[in-house]
Design a binder for these strands. Structure first.
Lengths: 297, 297
DNA sequence: GGAGCTGCATAGGTCCAGCCTATGTAAACG
DNA sequence: CGTTTACATAGGCTGGACCTATGCAGCTCC
């Protein structure tokens, strides 16, 4: 008995037609006839009654059918099971994240993940949420940490909220007139050091100002997180950044916002339509575990 | 993937030894190494860790092991299931027969058959020839004992004449004016107890009367064999039944028909286009044997 | 009714895969 | 350090799985 023969048998049983079954399994019809005949010879029983135009299973065929189907299904699960293991031994995960998360949250998590799966290459794409969402959609990312809510709400994305980040204002150590807590409208009189276009923090800050009734003024504009913090340290102005980032720069003064404060929600997103690769699912698990463990503390 | 490869894999997994595994499956050791390697290549993962003298399953191998074992076990049950059908240890026969045969001929034959093949379920369908022929054609019966000639002659049926039944007239014990032998035209003056529509005996009797030039009159009409015989016993009239049936009711008076007599031919029919299942072929053989043996006596 | 069509079976040829033997190689052991 | 053990590799052989071409039975359609 051969697995191929069982596949052929199933094809004939389903199509009730030798010629069409042969097409389905991509062999010539005589080859299929031969193989079915060989199987019948080995089992010592006819499997089909070959009435013209009406191929039907004999009782022997009916007895074989469920077992053959299970065998073939098992071969597929077998390869799949092994594949999943293989994919965790070597492979890659392409993860997108906002710059602030790349420096804040990710290092610890990626260290854990890499310790568990040293064969998996980690490919990090740093960018704003909008870019990341687009790359998720095109399939050039497996997972992405993005900021909610999504501007371009894509129903094909599954986004799980992960954590709420407090935003704070950072300023140079000797900046005068800094209150204990800042209100958004206090930013009206203070020039800001603003990130380049595309940063989620830029969108968030400007829209918060507009909601408070004014257009923010920029002392400097453009640059990544590091540059912005550098400009702030040089006294060019204030910047609004996640508290997690501010904590890593003790030389800068960090001022919280007055209640209700300014927060943003980070979510973990992936395409809904395609199951992510095993390595990516595993990273997702590690991420969710990490956040659940550390948010309770 | 090949079934052989899985067998080899299991052998190595169990013996933890390539050379001994090769002996067990009766191939040379290099062939086994090759096949295992081929399987590993196809799955994209090593299945064994080849430490000298200590062959062990990798995690991929462990994942494959139970599924491979199940697949191989399934192939064995598959052949076994079919074998059992072939060897008539298991299965069913669906046999159609006219009511008179069910009480007359069948019990003995079915007893013989069941003694020989106790694993075969016997499913008996009682009905008139016309119904039985239709069920043969649709495949809901394997074999049927029917009355010849067929009204709706179906060329797709193969009907082998089995035996000629003599028909006799049965009457209540005290019925007056009963001759030694009856002619069909004698029925003109005598009301009949008639079977329900669909009974072959009804068709046969009425058409015999019509052939003799008159329309029969019915004292009662409808009912199965038992009821008809009961009505006859109560003196409601005569009925025409197979002699075999009449013999089982010694309380009734049985009168033969004058030569050439009234007979009907019972035939064993099955579909011509599809070979009947093995169990049905065997029942056919038993039936023919029985009739041949007992008709000579 | 025969010409064409459909659809499975058969015939004959090709080629690859699975098996073989012979040999290589690496570890273990006295 | 030779010997043994045991798996891997090399290269040749053969059967079987596949192919194309053809046969043949039943059906349709003019």
């Amino acid at each position: 008995m051969q697995l191929q023969q069982l596949v052929y048998f199933l094809a004939v049983a389903e199509t009730r037609h030798f010629t069409r079954a042969a097409e389905r399994v991509h062999i010539a019809q005589p080859s299929l006839s031969q193989q079915i005949k060989a199987l019948e010879r080995e089992l010592g029983a006819e499997l089909f009654s070959r009435a013209r135009g009406n191929i039907a299973l004999t009782d022997a065929g009916q007895a074989l059918l469920p077992i053959a189907a299970r065998i073939i299904a098992d071969t597929e699960t077998a390869t799949q099971e092994v594949q999943e293991l293989v994919q965790l031994r070597r492979g890659r995960v392409r993860l997108g994240a906002t710059p602030s998360l790349c420096t804040g949250l990710l290092p610890d998590i990626l260290r854990d993940y890499h310790r568990q799966y040293p064969g998996i290459r980690l490919i990090i794409e740093e960018g704003g949420s909008r870019d990341l969402v687009r790359e998720l959609a095109t399939g050039s990312l497996d997972l992405a940490l993005i900021v909610l809510p999504l501007q371009s709400h894509d129903p094909a994305l599954d986004a799980t909220p992960l954590l709420h980040e407090d935003l704070v204002a950072v300023s140079a150590a000797g900046t005068p007139d800094m209150p204990e807590a800042l209100r958004v409208q206090d930013l009206r009189d203070r020039p800001l050091v603003m990130f380049r276009r595309g940063y989620d923090l830029r969108e968030l800050t400007t829209s918060a100002c507009r909601a408070a009734g004014f257009e923010p003024t920029f002392a400097v504009e453009g640059g990544e997180m590091d540059a912005v913090l550098g400009f702030v340290g040089a006294g060019l102005g204030l910047a609004v950044v996640p508290s997690m980032v501010a904590e890593r720069r003790p030389t800068l003064r960090s001022t919280p916002f007055a209640p209700p404060g300014l927060t943003r929600t980070i979510a973990l997103a992936h395409r809904k339509d395609a199951e992510p690769p095993r390595a990516a699912r595993e990273l997702r698990r590690v991420l969710l575990d990490y956040v659940r463990t550390h948010s309770t503390t």
